[in-house]
Computed example of a mutant assay.
Amino acid sequence: MHPNPTFRWQDEAAVRAFVRARSFAQLFATTPDGPAVAHLPVTLADDDTLRFHLARSNRLASHLAGATGLIVVNGPDGYISPDWYGLGPDEVPTWNYLAVEIVGQIELVDHAAMMDQIDRLGQEHERALAPKPEWRRDKADPGKIDRMASAIRGFRLIPSAWRATAKLNQNKPEAARLAAADAVAARGQHDLAQWMRDPPARP
C-alpha cells in the first residue's frame, strides 16, 4: 500500500461498504510450493469475517485451514497524465487506485455455513438485477446443487488487520485534482473520476 499517509483510508464503515459492494478479491497464502493466489467472490459477514469458497481442485484449497491469508479487494484504477493537472511541466505521471488489504487466520467452515455464504452472495447481487425475478437456490434441482457443492470448500477469514488506500490525487490542489478527474471521465473511467472528485476524508 502507498506509504503516504495522505492516502490512508481510515473510515472503517466506508471501507467495509466498499468491500461489500465490490465482492471480488484476490486471496494470497503460502503453500509448500510457494505463494499462491486465488481469485474469488467474498462476502463480509455480520461478525466482520470474510466468507468465501473455492474449488476443491484449486491448489490453495488443501492448505488454507489454519493458515494466515491476505485478501485484497481492488477498486477502479487508472493512469494519470501530469498534463491533466494544469500545473506546469514539472509534474510526473502517476497511477490512482483504491485497494483494501485484510490479513487474518483462515478457518474451514461446515457445509451449512458454506451454502449460507453462497446464498448470501446470490441474494446481495440478485437484488441489483431487479426487476428480473431473483434466482434462489431452492429453484434448482437439489441433487444437482448437492453434486456441485461437493466440488467446493467453504472458508472464513478472521481479520487481524485492515489496511485501506485511496490514492486519488489528494496531494494536489483541488482544482488540479478536479481537472484530472475530468480527463479521466473523458476516457470513460467514470467510477475512478467520481472517487477523485469526492475522495475519502484525510485521517
Rank of each mutant, 00 (worst) to 15 (best):
M1D: 14
P5Q: 06
T6L: 13
F7P: 14
F7S: 06
W9F: 08
W9Q: 12
D11Q: 08
F18R: 00
V19Y: 04
V19R: 08
R20K: 14
R20C: 11
R20V: 07
S23P: 15
Q26E: 15
Q26M: 13
L27S: 07
A29I: 09
A29F: 03
P32E: 10
P32D: 15
D33E: 15
G34R: 00
H39K: 06
L40Q: 10
V42E: 13
V42D: 15
L44F: 05
A45H: 13
T49K: 09
H53L: 05
L54V: 03
A55S: 11
R59V: 04
L60D: 14
A61D: 12
L64K: 05
A65R: 07
A65N: 14
T68D: 14
G69K: 01
I71F: 07
I71Q: 04
V72M: 01
P76G: 06
D77L: 01
D83K: 13
D83M: 13
Y85D: 15
G86L: 08
L87D: 15
L87F: 12
L87E: 15
D90M: 10
D90T: 13
W95G: 03
Y97N: 09
E101H: 12
E101N: 11
I102H: 00
G104D: 13
I106Y: 03
I106W: 02
E107S: 11
L108C: 08
V109R: 00
D110E: 11
A113F: 05
M115Q: 15
D116M: 04
D116W: 06
Q117W: 06
I118V: 14
I118A: 08
R120H: 05
R120P: 06
Q123R: 15
H125C: 04
H125K: 01
A128Y: 05
A128P: 05
P131V: 03
W135M: 01
R137T: 07
K139S: 13
A140Q: 14
P142A: 02
P142L: 02
P142F: 08
D146A: 12
A149R: 02
A151P: 10
A151M: 05
A151H: 03
I152K: 00
I158T: 15
S160K: 08
S160N: 10
A161Q: 09
A164T: 09
L168A: 00
E174W: 05
A175G: 00
A175Y: 02
A176R: 00
A179C: 11
A180T: 04
A181C: 03
D182L: 06
A183L: 01
A185L: 01
A185D: 11
A185S: 09
A186F: 10
A186P: 15
R187G: 09
Q189D: 07
D191M: 02
A193H: 02
A193E: 10
A193K: 00
W195Q: 00
R197E: 10
D198H: 15
D198R: 03
P199A: 04
P200S: 07
R202V: 12
P203S: 01
